[in-house]
Simulated assay, not measured.
Amino acid sequence: MTAAVPAFADPSPALDRVSVSVGAFRAEPTFNAGVDTPYGSVDTPDRRHSDVTIPRVRADILLFDSQGISFDYYRYDRSYDFGVSGGSTINGEPVTGSATFSSDVKIDFARLAYKWWIGSGNSVFGIGLGGAYYRADISGSVRGTVSTPSETFTDGVSDRYTDDAVAPLIELAWRHAFTPDLRMYVEASGVKKNGGTLEGHIYNGNIGLEWFPWHNIGLVADYGVSRVKLERNGSDSTADLDIRFKGPSLFLKARF
């Protein structure tokens, strides 16, 4: 007489038990920032800058064949210098002038989510809930001359702000395996935090292809779009930041 041992179903070929991806996001950023000055708020126009490479690390662990944990981390570190000039109207009074804006921006972003995978066979749909940690270090200075019909100001102002926050996270994903060694995926995630000294939202979307020329080692190529919009509250000055990224990523992926 033998005892029956319960059998666990194999996971979808679109999923791995454990995987780690290391690579970089080659992004084309569009940058906008705001700094408070003694003469009012100064907002830079949207500026498109040269491509920048952003290191990125991802990891996934599958639990119970249909649940798992996912992790993602990247850091953005860039300096900006550019000039603006032209005319405007403030409080009904015409204003003309020119200014030079300089800024150093550092953003660390990490997210951890628990995912439920729905479906079987070669296609699965995932829903993830978790938390995101982000840390912003933003410094900026404005130097220039502003003229009104009655007077001219030549002055400068600088500001620096460092803070971090934790916010709730939601993720959606779809994965499909053409073969065990050729797969594609679509992912979207959103972080939104209201209140506190640092608030704002971060959205990400990716579509990619995975190819494993070796059983445990493969290449991942995708195209992604991200937006980071942060605002500081509860102080005499603000350091607002709005950055949009779009571009391809390339990863080396190990699965076990």
Rank of each mutant, 00 (worst) to 15 (best):
D163C: 00
G190A: 05
M184P: 00
G224K: 06
L169D: 07
L172F: 15
R175C: 01
T145D: 14
T152W: 14
A173I: 00
N206D: 13
S158D: 12
F212V: 00
L169T: 03
V146S: 15
V186L: 15
F212D: 04
D159N: 15
D181M: 00
H215Y: 03
S147E: 14
L169N: 09
S141A: 15
Y161D: 13
L219I: 13
R175D: 07
S147Y: 05
G156A: 08
L169V: 04
W174Y: 08
Y223A: 05
K192H: 11
Y161V: 04
I170V: 14
Y203G: 07
Y203M: 06
G205E: 09
A173T: 09
L209D: 04
H176M: 03
R160M: 05
D163Q: 04
F153N: 09
Y185F: 15
W214F: 14
T152G: 11
D164R: 02
H215I: 00
D159H: 14
V220P: 01
L182C: 00
A177G: 02
V186E: 06
R175M: 07
E187L: 10
T148R: 12
E199F: 00
N206S: 10
Y161K: 11
T154R: 15
V146H: 06
A188H: 09
D155V: 02
D222R: 09
T152S: 15
S150W: 08
G156R: 08
E187K: 11
W174H: 06
T162W: 07
D164N: 10
N206L: 05
P213E: 05
G140T: 11
G208E: 04
F153W: 12
F212P: 01
V220G: 03
D163R: 03
G195F: 12
L172Q: 05
E199W: 01
E151T: 14
E210K: 05
W214E: 03
G208I: 02
V191A: 08
N194Y: 09
G218F: 06
E199D: 14
I217H: 09
D163N: 07
L182T: 04
S189T: 05
L169E: 11
T145P: 10
D155R: 10
E187C: 01
P149F: 08
R183D: 01
G190C: 00
D164T: 02
T179W: 04
A177N: 02
T197K: 14
L172D: 06
N204V: 00
G218R: 02
S141M: 06
G208M: 03
L209I: 13
D181V: 04
L169Y: 15
T154K: 14
S147Q: 13
I170F: 13
L219N: 04
P149L: 08
G195N: 11
L209R: 01
K193C: 04
G218Q: 03
Y161L: 07
Y185R: 06
D164W: 09
K192F: 13
G140D: 13
S141W: 13
W214M: 10
T152K: 13
Y161T: 07
G200W: 08
N206A: 09
D181L: 00
V186Y: 12
H201L: 02
V157R: 13
G205A: 15
Y161F: 15
W174D: 02
V191S: 11
G218H: 05
E171S: 07
R175T: 01
N194P: 01
D164E: 11
E171P: 01
D159T: 03
T148C: 08
W174P: 00
D155Y: 07
K192W: 10
H201R: 04
T145W: 09
